[in-house]
């Protein structure tokens, strides 16, 4: 797999692809994302999400919402404002074509068990294990970092920050304190 991706890196560098047509060095651009989101978008840090293999529509939407300021972000908005719409679309396309890799992480078995109940509202859109979202603007959650998901829920629960997606705001607020921890742990433990 590693060999394959490095080969792809080299080939894309040379051949370009659709992004190159627009004067975008998408490999070079995506490499800057690796700093925080890992090679191929597989994060190793608990608070930073994996992004490789998320759907193109979801990635594109969230990047554009950050750029317009429509959706709160702690730092992504300041980053994406530095890129053209075409560049952001190319980034979304690039990561969408990579495989989704659920990350192995330490989860608490008791929490995971509790989380199975807590995610009752989540699974209607994200799928039973978070791996099969209902539509293409809903992210996968299986094997996503638990701490990242918990922090996202905190954003949806806090009126002080502006989050898009009313349904998420409503449902995130319905979780109790335990659910706030166990729902992310449940999805994190899924393959």
């Amino acid at each position: 797999m590693r060999k394959l991706s490095s080969l792809l890196c080299t080939l894309a560098l040379i051949a370009g692809g659709p992004a190159a047509a627009a004067g975008i060095n998408i490999e070079g651009l995506a490499r800057t994302c690796n700093n925080c989101h890992g090679i191929n978008g597989v994060s190793v840090g608990q608070s930073m999400p994996s992004i490789g293999g998320l759907s193109e529509a979801y990635l594109k939407q969230i990047l554009m919402q950050w750029k317009s300021g429509e959706r709160f972000s702690a730092s992504m908005g300041r980053l994406v404002k530095g890129y053209s719409d075409e560049e952001l679309a190319a980034i979304a396309g690039y990561y969408a074509r990579l495989p989704w890799v659920p990350v192995a992480q330490n989860t608490d078995a008791r929490r995971v068990a509790h989380g199975k109940d807590a995610v009752e509202r989540c699974v209607t859109c994200h799928g039973d294990t978070g791996s099969e979202p209902d539509d293409d603007v809903t992210p996968k959650l299986n094997g996503q970092w638990a701490q990242y998901m918990e922090l996202e829920l905190m954003k949806y629960r806090d009126d002080a920050v502006k989050m898009t997606h009313k349904k998420m705001r409503t449902n995130a607020r319905k979780l109790d304190e335990e659910g706030l921890k166990s729902a992310p742990e449940f999805f994190a433990s899924q393959k």
């Binding site: 700093n35 925080c36 994060s43 190793v44 840090g45 608990q46 608070s47 930073m48 701490q147």
Partner: peptide, 9 residues
């Protein structure tokens, strides 16, 4: 929190 995640990555 992102600082720590940034560091690990």
């Amino acid at each position: 929190e992102y600082c720590v995640g940034w560091f690990n990555n």
